[in-house]
Design a protein around this nucleic acid. Structure first.
Length: 489
RNA sequence: GCCCCCAUCGUCUAGAGGCCGAGGACACCGGCCUUUCAAGCCGGUAACAGGGAGUCGAUUUCCCGUGGGGGCACCA
């Protein structure tokens, strides 16, 4: 009989949620949901010195944003709590003490100064760094003496000198490590907090975690963990190490590569469904065709067998494309609703607030298929909201035209449009297209000039739609302003 | 330095001995559509790093090398 699937995402509140961490969370979540298992969030707050205030909240809100809900953990509780390691200190201490009693661990009194010098010396001699085990076989008398000096020891694991540990990683297959290459790692720090290694093993066991899905960077510490499971008499979970997410230079994705926090993508106007889909495809694929997956489709199709072993570069171009595709697939209402906060934030301060929902509703259809991120919508649509257009007058003179012909064209436009009753796209086209012919201009010339007059830019949404949304009065005002600019040239 | 791992277009990847003179997607380049830009449609450029072994036959198996990554903290 197989044990029920229980997986966990175990972030450390030492910084904002890196997309790599989020990808790990996503895969854990997908695996749990696919196998009707439980997804646990456990907070690994054992590094007091690196703790970042507010990071926890950001991590959790990031998960919520993406739709990754958890069955046990912060805010929801569960039968295996507490879910903060800082509240489980006695459990780790007990485990460490037991290991000492059993002869699997020992107190180490070496100062961090000595350890540092030792590592430097090892580096100088081009030897692999590692603890030299000076305290491994201290006599009782020596220990008493050290204690008398007031030194608070750390607890180290007694890694066997001989033998090897092999395990079958669900993604990497069989992996073997010689014990001789593993030093005596610290289990309990001198401040009484456990290291990741100890806390992880103890908690994964106590929380009955069945599968550990974590990044590849943990692969080489897995044998240490296995050794600890063995010493503690715990049955280890199954391990699956996920490929790394890389920067453009193929190194582990980090700050210097630009945006790495999921919150930055949120702020930059990427949709959660884009991030989920994109991250899922970094290291996992279904077949040789499918690119766009909803969360539900991912749940239905996810499997570890289809996770690759190769690190994947985070490709911003593809992310942008995908976000554009998702934006286009949104209903107009949904698109508008999601864009609203970005408009509130991004439109020039001079634009009167509150923004008119009705007016925005008219603008949004013109921009939806052109936006790649929500954050660029304000920039793309600013001319709809501002009264004064600030642009280079020269832009009004398009290809094969000069100042005179441009003035003429805009004057003609003004004359023909002034008496218009209906200012809809059909009426506008019915007037302006013939006008171009009449003026012996290509439509591109007339419309190009007019586009600049009305929007202040050469690239904009379709002209007639734009003018229709702006309305007759404002459109003609802008034509007038353009004429002034041209004449002052 | 030591240990572990990885290796198909620029990027994400499909490919589990003949279906591959290698497929899809992004990006890029053409073309169509078109009032600009997008979107859409059509087409194109572009990869199995190298060397052995084994096989009737290797992108696909094994070995060697090469390149890359990860780890080696009282950080996770």
């Amino acid at each position: 009989m197989t044990k029920p699937v229980r997986v966990r995402f175990a972030p450390s509140p030492t910084g904002y949620p890196h997309v790599g961490n989020i990808r790990t969370a996503l895969f854990n979540w997908l695996f749990a949901r696919h196998s009707s298992g439980r997804f646990v969030v456990r907070i690994e707050d054992t590094d007091v010195t690196r703790k970042v205030e507010g990071a926890l909240e950001v991590i959790l809100s990031g998960l919520k944003w993406l739709g990754l809900d958890w069955d046990e953990g912060p805010g929801v509780g569960g039968d295996y709590g507490p879910y903060f390691q800082s509240q489980r200190l006695s459990l780790y201490r007990e485990a460490a003490e037991r290991l000492i009693r059993q002869g699997n661990a020992y107190c180490c009194y070496c100062s961090s100064q000595r350890l540092k010098e030792m590592r430097e010396e090892q580096a100088r001699r081009k030897q692999p760094p590692g603890y030299d085990r000076r305290c491994r076989d201290l006599s009782e008398a020596e220990r008493v003496q050290k204690e008398a000096k007031g030194i608070t020891p750390v607890v180290r694991f007694k890694t066997p000198f001989e033998g090897r540990t092999r395990f079958n990683d669900l993604i990497w297959g069989e992996v073997v490590f010689e014990h001789g290459t593993i030093d005596d790692l610290v289990l309990l720090k001198s401040d009484g907090y456990p290291t990741y290694h100890l806390a992880n093993v103890v908690d994964d066991h106590l929380m009955e975690i069945s599968h550990v899905l974590r990044a590849e960077e943990w692969l080489s510490s897995t044998p240490r963990h296995l050794l600890m499971y063995q010493a503690l008499g715990f049955e280890p979970p199954q391990f699956a190490h996920l490929p790394m997410i890389l920067g453009a230079d193929r190194a582990k994705l980090s700050k210097r590569h630009g945006s790495v926090s999921i919150t930055e993508y949120r702020e930059q106007g990427y949709l959660p469904e884009t991030m989920v889909n994109f991250l899922a495809l970094l290291g996992w694929s279904l077949d040789d065709k499918a690119e766009i997956f909803s969360l539900a489709e991912l749940v239905a199709n996810f499997s570890l067998e289809r996770v690759s072993r190769t690190g994947a570069i985070f490709n911003r171009d593809k992310l942008n494309w995908m976000n554009g595709a998702y934006i286009r697939s949104l209903s107009l209402d949904d698109f508008t609703r999601r864009t609203l906060p970005f408009l509130e934030n991004g439109l020039p301060a001079g634009v009167r607030r509150p923004l008119s929902i009705d007016y925005i509703g008219q603008v949004m259809p013109l921009i939806q298929e052109r936006a790649r991120t929500l954050a660029e919508v304000p920039e793309l649509t600013a001319f709809f909201f501002t009264d004064e257009l600030d642009y280079e007058p020269g832009l009004l003179i398009v290809k094969k035209m000069d100042r005179e012909s441009s003035v003429q064209a805009l004057e003609a436009v003004r004359q023909r449009l002034s008496p218009l009753q209906a200012f809809d796209t059909v009426s506008l086209e019915a007037v302006l297209r013939p006008l171009a012919a009449e003026l012996e201009l290509k439509t591109g010339q007339l419309f190009g000039t007019l586009r600049v007059a009305v929007t202040g830019r050469t690239v904009a949404p379709p002209l007639f739609e734009t003018m229709s949304v702006l309305g007759k009065e404002r459109s003609l005002e802008r034509v007038g302003a353009a004429l002034d600019k041209l004449r002052s040239l």
